[in-house]
């Protein structure tokens, strides 16, 4: 039986790479996002890469009305329902300092929107007794840093949500993979200074797929970020508060 992958935030380069990877394995793909023209091009690509079926569908993390049609659509398909969440936005800390009202949108894009969607689809997954949720968070969610603590705190909220969802779905045979990418070479990070050890979206997609197959709980990708974040989280707060890392 063919599995379905709902890919939220389907226009991001990481999502595209992941969609291609599951398409090559012959999945059915629902690409969800806002730029429908772009999603349709990606859906054609998925079909030609080997997806049994691929469709573009509207999703806006800030518009909960777009959620139910996606779930209805997926519920009509046979096989397990899987969801991969690539949505997110990262206004710079400077922009947020200048306009604190940006915080609400950042929290919606990175946490509240996708969490609401997952909460709505969880019963359908439980009913089928399986399925995997991939939630893409960030290493920035492991500790609040001066450079981007609003984005980081939204991701931290999402991490905690995913941990709870894992606890729930595991009882019905489902699974949740929390993905914490380090620096990835995407449109979001293009031209930002101070990036190092940057990974390609294809590398991240590959790591995610392996984690799904092995039913890993939390992965850092590339893997060495576990070590880097281990060090960063071990620094005592009274020291950390004076650092700009």
């Amino acid at each position: 039986m063919t599995d379905t992958w709902i890919i939220l935030g389907g226009t991001s380069s990481m999502a595209r790479a992941f969609a291609r990877a599951v398409s090559r394995n012959g999945a059915q793909v629902l690409l969800a996002g806002r730029d429908m023209k772009d999603l349709e091009a990606s859906a054609s690509d998925c079909s030609l890469q080997g997806a049994i079926a691929a469709e573009a569908i509207r999703f806006d993390a800030r518009d909960a009305n777009t959620f139910a049609p996606i779930i209805d659509n997926a519920s009509k398909l046979e096989g397990m329902i899987n969801v991969a969440v690539f949505v997110g936005s990262m206004p710079s800390q400077d922009q947020i300092d200048a306009d604190p009202s940006l915080i609400a949108g950042t929290v919606t894009d990175n946490y509240a929107g996708p969490a609401t969607f997952l909460q709505m689809i969880a019963p359908a997954m439980e009913e089928r007794g399986g399925g995997t949720v991939v939630g893409v968070g960030s290493v920035a969610g492991d500790r609040g840093r001066i450079g981007n603590y609003v984005y980081g705190s939204a991701k931290a909220g999402f991490h905690t949500y995913l941990s709870g969802l894992r606890n729930r779905l595991t009882r019905s045979g489902g699974h949740v993979v929390t993905v914490k990418p380090g620096f990835v070479d995407t449109a979001m990070t293009w031209g930002i200074e101070g990036m190092f050890l940057v990974a390609t979206p294809d590398k991240i997609a590959d790591d995610i797929l392996k984690a799904v197959e092995k039913r890993k709980d939390v992965i850092y990708t590339p893997g060495f970020w576990r070590l880097i974040m281990g060090i960063i989280t071990a620094i005592p707060e009274r020291v950390f508060k004076k650092l700009s890392v």
Partner: peptide
Amino acid sequence: MIWNTLTYTGWGRVHRATAQVARPERIS
């Protein structure tokens, strides 16, 4: 950011250029 300052070469690596490079992911 749209433009990223990069120094790059052709395959022969004799000449190099420093340019403002954009890398769109979508047609829009």
